[in-house]
């Protein structure tokens, strides 16, 4: 099977001012991440706010330059490609469909933008393609005439998906595409994304903090913590037998709609992870309920985990 996305030793640091007299802080948002995504599959990425998911998405989209490491998309080095070639290969769908659509343009012009930016499509071709993709995502031609503010959240997300697909890319990076939506609308959008993937043979990188959603859409799942993948495996294996204590806590905190089961004690303290201050040893150790002395000194290295995965924990 061919590889759609290949990421090698990717690292991204930000330097932030902590105040007038404080020293400049180094935020390590993505810390030496390596993985690949086979064509036609869906890699789900889960993790808490600030763990680096969106930064990783922006690095893979070429919107952000890495501090170190490489990204290959469809076998080509991302930074060898110009913007137009990149746009034909890989497209984003972001969380907030309102912020990501220009409020002063009609929906059909917003959807046409990637085509016009290429500069190689005729007016007639653009109109044909826009009409086709709007219909495919379930928006009527009349919706195409409206402004973003005149659409519901779900309709706006459909428009954002149409814009991402109008150039017929191979890969779509979905960063929390349904987090701002109600469950009813979320279900509509997830079903649409699944249909499109099947019919068009797309590859998705699917970022979400909702584990139930990720389990539903992803063939493989990576768990991110303070900039690193701490566990990765086939979806069923990861959900059935999570190896990392953090993955276990995440799974326990999913509140399934089963009455009478109460809210579990997930056993994490209130120490919150801070990417400007990554603890020595295992980065999870201040919150880990089973940490041993070695965890505070030595960082765990990736260990193979059946059938296809890895985990970074001394005790897994």
């Amino acid at each position: 099977m061919s590889v759609a996305i290949e990421v090698q030793n990717l690292r991204c640091e930000f330097r932030v001012n902590a105040g007038w007299f404080a020293a400049e802080k180094r935020v390590i948002a993505v810390d030496d991440v390596t993985f690949s995504v086979p064509a036609g599959s869906v890699l789900g990425i889960v993790g808490e706010s600030g763990c680096g998911k969106s930064t990783l998405a922006r690095l893979i989209l070429g919107l952000l330059k890495p501090t170190a490491g490489t990204v290959l998309v469809d076998g080509k080095r991302l930074f060898d490609l110009d913007r137009k070639a990149r746009a034909r290969l890989i497209q984003p769908v972001f969380q907030d469909p309102f912020a990501s659509l220009n409020p002063r343009h009609r929906i059909k012009d917003i959807v046409a933008l990637p085509l016009t930016a290429q500069g190689t499509f005729s007016r007639a071709e653009i109109e044909r393609r826009v009409a086709q993709i709007l219909e495919r995502v379930g928006l009527s031609a009349a919706m195409g005439e409206r402004m973003p503010s005149q659409l519901s959240g779900g309709q706006r997300q459909r428009a954002a998906i149409a814009r991402a697909l109008v150039l017929e890319p191979r890969i779509v990076i979905c960063d929390e595409p349904t987090s701002a939506l109600d469950v009813s609308v979320q279900a509509q959008i997830l079903n649409l994304l699944a249909d499109l993937r099947r019919d068009l043979g797309l590859t998705y990188l699917f970022i979400s903090h909702n584990l139930a959603v990720v389990e539903h859409v992803a063939s493989e799942v990576a768990v991110m913590y303070l900039g690193r993948f701490v566990e990765r495996n086939e979806t069923d294996a990861l959900f059935r037998a999570p190896g990392h204590p953090y993955t276990q806590a995440l799974l326990q905190s999913v509140l399934t709609p089963e009455p009478g089961r109460g809210v579990p004690d997930i056993g994490l303290g209130d120490a919150m992870p801070d990417p400007a201050n990554i603890p020595p040893g295992c980065r999870f150790n201040p919150r880990c309920g089973i940490a041993v002395e070695r965890c505070r000194r030595v960082a765990p290295t990736p260990m193979v985990r059946a059938p296809q995965g890895m985990v970074e924990c001394h005790l897994a």
Binding site: A187, V217, F239
Partner: peptide, 18 residues
């Protein structure tokens, strides 16, 4: 019917929706 239930989801089966 819209809520995906972990451990019981069937991928490739659409979720219920309104």
């Amino acid at each position: 019917s819209c809520v995906p239930v972990p451990g019981r989801v069937q991928r490739d089966r659409p979720l219920g929706s309104i």
